[in-house]
Amino acid sequence: MSTIPSKFHSFIFKDSKGKDFNFADLKDKVVLIVNVASKCGFTPQYKGLEELYKKYKDEGLVILGFPCNQFGSQEPGTEEEIVSFCSMNYGVTFPIMEKSDVNGEKENEVYKYIKVEKPGLMGLKRIKWNFEKFLVDKNGKVVERYASTTKPSSIDSKIKELLASN
Rank of each mutant, 00 (worst) to 15 (best):
S100C: 12
S73D: 15
K39I: 02
P67E: 09
K112Y: 04
D25H: 04
I12H: 03
I155E: 03
P119I: 08
E117R: 02
S6N: 08
I82Y: 08
F85N: 11
E161D: 11
L124P: 00
G140I: 01
Q45H: 14
N139Q: 13
V110W: 04
G65F: 07
V142E: 08
F23Q: 01
L163W: 05
S154R: 01
F11I: 05
N103D: 15
E80S: 14
E98L: 07
S6V: 06
G60L: 05
V92T: 10
K115I: 12
I127T: 07
F13E: 14
I127C: 11
V62W: 02
G77V: 02
Q70S: 01
I4D: 11
D15I: 04
S87F: 10
D156K: 01
K47D: 15
K133C: 14
I159N: 02
Q45W: 04
N166G: 08
D28Q: 11
L163A: 07
F66A: 12
R126V: 15
K125M: 15
K7T: 14
G18W: 08
T78P: 10
G72N: 07
L49E: 07
M97N: 06
K112T: 14
N139W: 03
M1W: 03
A37D: 05
Q45M: 05
G65Q: 04
E51N: 10
M122E: 14
L32R: 01
K118V: 04
K141C: 10
M1A: 13
K160L: 08
L163T: 04
F66S: 12
S73M: 11
G140E: 05
I96P: 06
I96A: 03
K55Y: 05
L124Q: 14
E50W: 02
K115M: 13
S73Y: 13
Y113H: 14
